[in-house]
């Protein structure tokens, strides 16, 4: 039973003309699958590797380097909420913010809420330092995140 739908396969194939080697499509392919399935199942690793004409071990080598990609056991929730923990944000309260969110969502960093809505993680500098403490909601930064603003965000994400 193929994990990659024909649609996903087409999207991956669309990247081939851009690079002189198929292996270069590894990150784009992993992102496509990860965004759709909220993880990269082992079977998908095999299927992508076959498309890229590399061994599954080689693709797994690449995938496991980036802590970004989750396997089936750590599937992401609907929204990935990362709290920046680097210096500029720490100096302006990111530790407290992360603690507040852990309490509010009843999770540890890396875990997903019971309702499957939000995965809370910490991130290294997300480049939104002028608005420290900042968070990343999937791939868009939100700045000046006070506890109140975080609560409002959670409310919206749960809708």
């Amino acid at each position: 039973m193929s994990v990659l739908t024909p649609e996903l396969r087409q999207k991956i194939e669309a990247y081939f003309p851009r690079y002189p080697s198929k292996q270069a499509v590894a990150l784009p392919a992993l992102h496509l699958v990860h965004d759709t399935l909220r993880c990269v199942p082992l079977e998908a690793v095999r299927e992508i590797a076959e498309m890229l004409e590399i061994s599954p071990a080689e693709l797994n080598d690449t995938m496991s380097f980036y802590g970004f990609f989750k396997d089936e056991q750590h599937r992401l929730g609907k929204t990935r909420l990362w709290v920046c923990r680097s210096l500029a944000c720490q100096l302006r309260g990111s530790d407290e913010l992360l603690g507040h969110l852990c309490e509010k969502l009843h999770v540890q960093p890396g875990q997903t809420t019971q309702d499957g809505n939000i995965t809370l993680e910490f991130a290294e500098c997300i480049g939104a330092c002028e608005g420290a403490p900042s968070v990343l909601v999937n791939d868009e930064a939100m700045m000046d995140v006070s506890n109140e603003k975080a609560d409002k965000l959670i409310e919206e994400l749960r809708r």
């Binding site: 080697s21 992102h31 380097f65």
Partner: peptide, 23 residues
Amino acid sequence: HRGAGAYICGEETGLIESLEGKR
């Protein structure tokens, strides 16, 4: 070409390796 959260991809040869689809 979108990265995947690794600081070392800012190093020029790290970037190239990542672009090529490797660690």
